[in-house]
Write a protein that binds this DNA or RNA. Structure first.
Ligand code: SF4
Ligand code: SF4
Lengths: 163, 163
DNA sequence: CCTATTGCGGATAAAATATATCCGTGATAG
DNA sequence: CTATCACGGATATATTTTATCCGCAATAGG
């Protein structure tokens, strides 16, 4: 029950791109440097996000990544599922069909078992909660909760590369 | 973001023990055989559950495991946290403090960041949902949703060992 | 007391994932 | 034509999960 740190990187990248002026893009290398994470590995995540239609990519010089949709159309769930895959976190091994007391065949086996249902239900509320949070919500909060000095610094850093 | 299969085994064991008649206990070996899972490994999980006060253990011949509390006092969350540990599933690497745009020091770093808060909030609703489901709830549903033939078979299997 | 059964705890091994890197290819701006 | 950049596959390393083993302590029953 642990979420890979790639997810954190991906969310950071997406929020950063979401806050960029129109038509501005960042390269994989720049995104890696900005966040202080290894470039070749982050590239894989960006590739996945691109593949899932969350990011747009442009090849060649002046290329890079942009958010593919409006920030209010991308939720944290979208990003998490893209990186982690959308398999349920609880995988049922069908234990009820193993061991000496299992039946050869039973109609009740066609329905998901009680334990699995409960776990999947919990995962559903988790997903619903993440789906509520859009990148636009994060941007909103950034303005009021992040140190203005850091925002300034970040803005300068980006302008410098895009000049 | 995957829950280890040990959790599934643990829940199965606990629900089985929860449905047992008073003063009946099962050994680790029996629990493993019943569910068709490797005994030495399951033993670790049982040990953990015992350590966390979910199961009672008795050493020596005629020993084994019993549920330590009333079935309505043990939730799925209790079991999940016992086996998986209660670290949050989203671990923040404090990326905001890395990279070229980070500040040496800022009061805003003392508060959890927006991304982390959102993830933790989602985990909270997940936990709350699991906390709602008690072993007694599962037992209730077992009666109506599990094939009666399997219940009978299980009951017989247990009586045979305890005779 | 003696013995057989059972859980406990630590050490260890094997398998599966997550993390990280590398390189050849194709796209494209200048 | 060239330098830049994303893509995709192959590969290496680290960490976690899964699984096993063994000596010890507890205890029921003879
Ligand atoms: S479906 Fe339920 S009973 Fe069956 S194996 Fe999964 S968790 Fe166990
Ligand atoms: S998620 Fe928030 S707290 Fe965690 S690293 Fe990113 S900025 Fe920092």
């Amino acid at each position: 029950m642990k979420i890979s740190s790639t997810v954190e990187w991906a969310i950071h990248c997406c929020s950063l791109l979401a806050g960029l002026p129109k038509e501005t893009s960042l390269t994989g290398k720049e995104l890696a440097e900005f966040h202080g994470v290894p470039h070749p590995y982050l590239a894989k995540a960006l590739q996945t996000l691109s593949h899932d239609g969350i990011l747009n990519t442009v090849s060649g010089p002046k290329g890079g990544y942009q958010l593919a949709k409006k920030p209010n159309k991308v939720s944290l769930l979208d990003i998490v599922l893209s990186i982690e895959g959308n398999d349920p976190c609880f995988e049922c091994d069908e234990i009820r069909r193993k061991g000496p007391t299992a039946l050869e065949k039973s109609p009740s086996y066609k329905r998901p078992c009680l334990i699995a249902s409960a776990m999947w239900n919990a995962e559903k509320v988790w997903r619903d909660e993440l789906a509520k949070v859009k990148l636009s919500d994060l941007l909103e909060q950034v303005k009021s909760k992040v140190d203005p000095r850091q925002l300034k610094k970040a803005q300068k850093w980006i302008e410098q590369r895009k000049a």
